[in-house]
Structures are given as C-alpha cells and as structure tokens.
Design a binder for these strands. Structure first.
Ligand SMILES: [Mn+2]
Ligand SMILES: [Mn+2]
Ligand SMILES: [Zn+2]
Ligand SMILES: [Zn+2]
Lengths: 158, 158
DNA sequence: TTCCTTAATAGGAATTATTCTTATCTGGGG
DNA sequence: CCCCAGATAAGAATAATTCCTATTAAGGAA
C-alpha cells in the first residue's frame, strides 16, 4: 500500500463523484474494483483484482471485473500499464527507437529522436534493479481510426 | 515494407550469423519467422507472423512460431513491443508518472520526473495521429529477480 | 417512499492466446 | 556418412478474455 488512508479516502470519493458526473452508476462492485486498484501500487492484472475483490464481495464474477476495468479505462478513470493489447507484439528493429501506439486499433509506428534516445532516468530508478533499456511510448489515436469513427480493435495491421 | 531489399538481405544474413554465433541452429522455420518480422514495420503479433510464414512454409505450427519468437527475444535478436506480459496490467494512478518494468517477473514500479513528463516529441509523430499522452518505460531486472537466479514469471505481485 | 427504466451483474459457455506434451525430424559437428 | 541434442509438428491443455442470457438494482420521477 503506497497511498495514505486519507489520500485513499479522497481518491475513492473523487472516483464516486466522477462516476456520477460521467453517467456511470455507483455500484458496490464498481467501487470495490476501484478500491482494489487504488489501494495498491502493484499494477495488478484483472485476475488479481478479482481475487482481492472477491474476499470482500462474495459472488462477484470475473466478467464484472474485466468489464469494469475496461469501462473505467475507457472513461479515463484508470489506465492500462505497458500492455495495450491482448497479444504480444514483436519488433525486429533493434536500433534505438520509440513507439507511437494507437489505443483504438493497436497500430504501432516507429519514430526516432536523438534526444529521446538518451533520457535522464532518475537515480531512484536504479534502486529498483538493473536498467537494460528505456524508451518512450506515445499513446494516441491514429489518423485512420480518427476518421472512421469507433470500430473494433483489429489484429496487428498487415 | 519499410526496409529496402538490400537492407533486408543484410539483416537476414546478420541474423543467420548471429544464430550460429549464439549456438542456435539455422533452421528453415527460424529464418522464415525472422524474415516475416524483418520484412515489415507493422510490429506483428505471433498469429500474424504465423499466417505470413504459413504462406511460404506449409505445415509450420503455431507452436514453432511462438517458441521461435520467444527464443529470439531471449537472445536479444528481436524485441517485444509495448506488451511485456500475457495479461493486461492496470493503474489507478492517473498522475503523470513513468514505469520501471522487470522483464523477469513483470514487476512494475512507478517513478516521477519533471523532465520526463514533458518530453520533446518529434513533429513527425503528429502525422501518425492525435497524441494523447507519452511516458517513459524503463526495462530491466528487479533486485529480487537479480538475486534468486532465473525463476518463473509470476502474476502481478500482491 | 415506491415505481420504473435500463445499466449493470452473475454464472457459465465460448472464444482467443499461449503453452505443454510427445513422437519425430534434422542441422551441423566429427 | 552418422549421430544426437536441439527443433519441429500436431494437437491437447491451460490461461486470458469475451460473450450470452436471465436477473438485479441504481437512481430519476412521481
Ligand atoms: Mn518498433
Ligand atoms: Mn503506475
Ligand atoms: Zn488506429
Ligand atoms: Zn523481477
């Protein structure tokens, strides 16, 4: 647990308000899912959230946890870390470069930048472990997704 | 296809050499999997690579594609983009921050940096689409993974 | 407070992604 | 040419996620 009790209280209240404001019903399950996420800094996956919530809300279904996490992310109330899609994406380009990722279709575009290649990583990070590499990830919506309205996420293009 | 014919040739030759050097057998399937990845800049997932290779090597199995991609990544001959683990990881911390990711166990640690919060994203990226956010991802091996040798990847801690 | 509409949920099946198992094959050193 | 550890094929098994349908309940209206 990284956040203080009072800060947690504040975030949960703010979350409840945000739900109301955005037209999302403030359900018991929804609050518990958010709590499970906000109480920790471990960036849990859906299954971990499910297990944690289940100890407080008997009978909650996995589907509710998955659905709630997806809903909250789409409303900008929580974020996905690192993994943006369900399947791993590979890259044969080992040269130092960075990525633009479309959050709508999963498109990944490369870009280069001398400046970004040598980022000033804070010394505190070194205490976490050995650093192998660092790169910038830019998230957004690609031009083709921007025009053709919503659409489903597709498999990696081509 | 973003790379020139000659550059592709060069990379494939280099790959073949690298395999030999690292004690990996230069198999037909392995070469085709690498080719499928190197010929494109679409950062394909395993299924896409499988489909592409299958049109040239009838009878190749999905397992070979998955296994080969994993092997090549472990040898540093290709990279995984964005998604580091099999399951999505969530974050309730919407404040601007960055991540250290352990490639051995999936641990994700937050860190902050005023400098990194406002990186100079090249103008070329704007042509890809609308930019919503950008953050730095540092990859490495966490301290606990560094001591207790290899070990299996575990579910998100806690 | 009670009623009503419909978003949200539970439970489980279905689907998708990835890994495992086992028999068989083959690259490349000798 | 021979050998055999490393690789592969095929498909079962497992893990992750989504879908389906009947039922529940949040919250606005009366
Ligand atoms: Mn790339
Ligand atoms: Mn975080
Ligand atoms: Zn897109
Ligand atoms: Zn680790």
């Amino acid at each position: 647990m990284a956040v203080s009790k009072s800060e947690l209280q504040r975030r949960i209240q703010a979350f409840s308000d945000a739900c109301s404001r955005k037209g999302l019903r403030v359900t018991h399950q929804r609050m518990e899912v958010f709590w499970a996420l906000a109480v920790s800094d471990a960036h849990p996956d859906a299954e971990s959230v499910y297990q944690r919530v289940r100890s407080r809300v008997t009978g909650i279904s996995r589907d509710t946890v998955y659905r709630t996490l997806a809903t909250l992310e789409s409303k900008g109330l929580i974020r996905k870390a690192a993994a943006l899609g369900g399947s791993a994406r590979y890259d044969a380009n080992m040269a130092n470069h960075h990525h633009f990722v479309c959050t709508a279709c999963g498109l990944i575009k490369d870009f280069s930048s001398k400046v970004l290649d040598d980022l000033p990583i804070p010394k505190t990070v070194e205490s976490f472990g050995r650093i192998d590499a660092s790169q910038v990830q830019v998230r957004g919506v690609c031009v083709s997704c921007a025009k053709r309205k919503p659409k489903k996420r597709r498999r990696s293009p081509k």
